Simulated assay, not measured.
Amino acid sequence: MNWDAVTGFFTPWGWWVAALVLAAAETVAPGAFLLWLGIAAGLTGLVTLLTGAGWEVQLAVFAVLAVLSVLWGRKWARRHQGSGPSSVSRRADQLPGRTVVLVEPIVHGRGRAELDDTVWEVCGPDAPAGTVMRILRTEGAALIVEPVA
């Protein structure tokens, strides 16, 4: 093994290339983990530029910065994203009070209605197709509706 080729990576440019590769990999990897490692690599490159540290020190600096950046990133994510479900998963909470039009009649308490280009199962009093109904609540994937007065 050519040891000079391996240690040749430990330059500021080597760390900055690693930072860019990690940041680019973040776009295809799930979660937000590689970004923080990329930041640590970029900062390690800066430390290397300013101090001229050897590869052993560079690896130690990267390890410490990687742990700190991941911990800081988790804290930042919790503060900015919240711990509850996203607005996408709370879509059903936003539906009560809206109106839908039946695309199939409600017969024996079940029918279908269209809302925002999506056809939903609805439950409510029997009504013919074309009737405008108000959403009262959701139960699973079904909308509980009543006729608009």
Score class of each variant (00 low, 15 high):
105 P>T: 03
30 P>V: 09
81 Q>P: 00
83 S>W: 13
128 P>R: 10
3 W>A: 15
127 A>W: 03
118 T>P: 00
12 P>V: 04
3 W>N: 05
10 F>L: 01
20 L>G: 15
10 F>H: 13
84 G>P: 00
127 A>T: 05
3 W>V: 15
6 V>T: 12
116 D>L: 13
65 L>V: 02
52 G>H: 09
5 A>C: 00
114 E>P: 05
130 G>C: 10
141 A>K: 11
146 E>G: 00
2 N>P: 13
16 W>I: 11
121 E>C: 00
86 S>E: 11
124 G>P: 06
47 V>N: 02
119 V>Y: 02
115 L>I: 12
49 L>R: 10
13 W>M: 13
31 G>P: 04
23 A>N: 07
47 V>G: 04
142 A>H: 07
106 I>A: 01
6 V>I: 15
102 L>A: 03
112 R>K: 14
121 E>L: 08
140 G>A: 07
137 R>L: 04
134 R>A: 04
59 L>P: 03
9 F>R: 09
4 D>T: 06
28 V>P: 05
132 V>N: 11
139 E>N: 07
130 G>K: 09
85 P>I: 11
6 V>C: 02
104 E>V: 01
112 R>W: 06
40 A>C: 07
44 T>A: 03
125 P>H: 10
21 V>W: 03
133 M>I: 08
65 L>R: 02
100 V>N: 09
2 N>F: 07
101 V>R: 15
8 G>E: 12
117 D>E: 15
141 A>P: 10
93 D>E: 13
84 G>R: 15
141 A>C: 01
110 R>E: 12
115 L>P: 01
48 T>P: 06
12 P>A: 07
123 C>S: 11
73 G>S: 12
32 A>P: 11
41 A>P: 04
124 G>A: 06
26 E>V: 11
114 E>T: 08
137 R>A: 15
109 G>H: 10
127 A>D: 09
138 T>F: 00
108 H>Y: 04
32 A>Y: 12
83 S>E: 14
38 G>R: 03
83 S>C: 08
133 M>G: 09
34 L>P: 05
16 W>T: 05
102 L>G: 02
125 P>N: 08
110 R>C: 03
107 V>E: 14
97 G>Q: 06
69 S>V: 05
149 A>F: 00
78 R>V: 13
96 P>D: 05
68 L>V: 15
72 W>C: 14
37 L>E: 09
73 G>E: 04
119 V>N: 07
38 G>D: 06
59 L>Q: 07
102 L>N: 02
9 F>Q: 15
36 W>I: 09
130 G>P: 06
58 Q>G: 09
113 A>E: 13
113 A>Y: 05
88 V>F: 12
49 L>P: 04
143 L>P: 03
55 W>P: 10
75 K>G: 15
69 S>Y: 03
1 M>H: 04
131 T>W: 02
42 G>D: 06
20 L>R: 00
148 V>Y: 08
6 V>Q: 13
135 I>H: 05
4 D>N: 08
132 V>S: 14
103 V>M: 02
142 A>R: 14
138 T>Q: 10
112 R>M: 10
82 G>C: 11
141 A>S: 15
92 A>D: 14
35 L>H: 09
129 A>T: 13
34 L>G: 09
73 G>P: 09
101 V>I: 15
126 D>A: 07
38 G>V: 05
46 L>T: 11
41 A>E: 07
